[in-house]
């Protein structure tokens, strides 16, 4: 066989991953269908009415009020004054409430995740080396149910949880807190379980052979070994929690979103954009806090 033929033959026989290839083809097909199947119409964006809408929005609606009314003083000083006023009347409350909601909910979610991580992991549930075969089925069902609960909790978006809880609990901050807590509890429970599963097996098996019970293993090995990693995840989720908390107010709870919706109802889009800007700064600040915390934790190792 010539070299060319050998190359051809080897290429023909190359190991192929059908699942991967099929997945990529399927995803590409879905994307193409989404853009060209008539569900998302790009041309809609370029109608004259929309252009006029856009011009009005940026030329007038979104323009800060003090800059708009030239006779009302105008200028940079008036702008600053306006920013200060919106901050005092709405921004401060909204930002504070948003941050508090996020902080409380992530602590609740973190506690749930911490408690259920070993239960939802496959590690302690394995017959070998942790269990004798008779209680294997029972522990496996525990593990599976905790994982299923986690999936159900995180599959439903925070916003929908808040919407449903609001109807039951009424307009306090609880619906927002619980909605965020529930969704993130699902996520942290899963991430915690993964952390436990990825711990080195040998020290755990060693403990088991020494006669340690499951709870003793958890207390003496799982938590000390996995806590650092888990806390990293925790702070990652804290970031997203603050981001989500800004919008939950749109349902009627006092967070930034509440004031956003209220500004929209009054057609005050300049105020709306300013409030969103406050929110963005809050989210960036939370990012920074989370980054600091994670760095601090990493250095501890």
């Amino acid at each position: 066989m010539s070299v060319a033929q050998r190359v051809h033959e080897l290429r023909r026989q190359r190991p192929r991953d059908r699942f991967l290839r099929g997945s990529l083809v399927l995803l590409a097909a879905v994307v193409i269908y989404a853009w060209f199947g008539g569900d998302v119409r790009v041309t809609e964006l370029f109608s004259e009415r929309r252009a006029a809408n856009l011009a009005r929005f940026f030329g007038h609606d979104a323009m800060p009020r003090p800059l708009r009314d030239a006779e009302g003083g105008g200028g940079f000083g008036a702008l600053l004054q306006w920013v200060g006023q919106v901050w005092r009347e709405k921004g401060a409350t909204g930002v504070g409430a948003t941050f508090a909601i996020a902080a409380l909910s992530i602590v609740l979610a973190g506690a749930y995740g911490l408690l259920t991580a070993p239960l939802a992991s496959r590690t302690l549930m394995r017959c070998d080396p942790y269990l004798s075969s008779e209680d294997c089925a029972w522990w496996r069902s525990v593990s599976i149910s905790f994982r299923l609960i986690a999936v159900a909790l995180r599959a439903v978006p925070e916003y929908m949880w808040a919407f449903l809880l609001l109807a039951v609990l009424g307009p306090t901050a609880w619906p927002a807190v619980l909605a965020l807590a529930v969704h993130n509890a699902g996520i942290l429970s899963r991430l915690g379980a993964e952390t436990v599963e990825n711990l080195p097996r040998r020290p755990l098996a060693g403990l088991r052979r020494l006669g340690a019970s499951r709870s003793q293993i958890a207390v003496s090995a799982l938590y000390p070994l996995g806590l650092g990693r888990y806390l990293l995840y925790f702070f990652y989720r804290f970031e997203t929690c603050v981001r989500e908390a800004t919008v939950l107010g749109m349902l009627g709870v006092v967070s930034l979103g509440y004031f956003v919706v209220e500004a929209r109802a009054r057609d005050r889009y300049d105020e709306l954009l300013l409030l969103i800007l406050f929110g963005a700064i809050l989210v960036l600040a939370a990012d920074f806090i989370s980054w600091l915390a994670r760095r601090w934790l990493r250095q501890a190792k």
Binding site: V3, R6, V7, L10, R11, Q13, R14, P15
Partner: peptide, 27 residues
């Protein structure tokens, strides 16, 4: 391209792993 492929195969055969030309390296 064809030229590269043929040369790669020759080099791989020289080092004794010609059959692995289209395998993933970490396998």
């Amino acid at each position: 391209d064809q030229g590269d492929s043929e040369e790669v195969l020759r080099v791989l055969e020289r080092v004794g792993i010609g059959a692995k030309m289209f395998h993933r390296t970490d396998t």
